[in-house]
């Protein structure tokens, strides 16, 4: 499948996930976990909107840069979120969604590499 079309789908999935995370914000049992979730869901929302535009316009290097940024930040989020400090009822959902997003963008970078897009030349 076309790399840009696939990236577009991935960004739409991320957009939906970020909306879901924003929707479950109030279920967090402590304020720190809530702010942390809010930060990552807003980050995912903004980068998905940017990504939809880049993929729509066929701007490969910007899609790749966006993918790197998302992987980096989302894994940092996951690394902190697994600590007991952020315990909350929605944690399993948050970790699942952000884990899927990370996997999606690793796969996308692999596809970009297979499509001969320079994934290390930003």
């Amino acid at each position: 499948m076309n790399f840009y079309r696939l990236s577009l789908y991935f960004f739409v999935i991320q957009f939906i996930f970020s909306i879901i995370l924003l929707g479950v914000l109030f279920l967090n049992s402590n304020v720190y976990a809530m702010y942390h979730t809010m930060a990552v869901s807003l980050f995912m929302l903004i980068t998905s909107i940017m990504g939809i535009y880049f993929a729509w316009k066929g701007q490969g290097s910007r899609v790749v840069a966006d993918a790197w940024l998302i992987i980096s930040i989302v894994t940092a989020y996951i690394a902190i979120d697994v600590s007991p400090f952020f315990n909350s009822p929605v944690k399993p959902l948050e970790l699942s969604l952000t884990g899927i997003v990370t996997a999606l963008w690793i796969a996308d970078l692999y596809l970009a590499w297979r499509s001969r897009l320079p994934i290390l030349r930003l």
């Binding site: 720190y32 942390h36 930060a39 940024l69 992987i71 980096s72 930040i73 940092a76 290390l120 930003l122």
Partner: peptide
């Protein structure tokens, strides 16, 4: 240099996020 770039793309935003969270906490 390719490896340095790769590590940088991955590590830098992560460091900023982690320090920001630590600071806010």
């Amino acid at each position: 240099y390719r490896a340095l770039s790769f590590l940088s793309y991955f590590i830098l935003p992560q460091h900023v996020w982690l320090v920001a969270v630590g600071l806010l906490l």
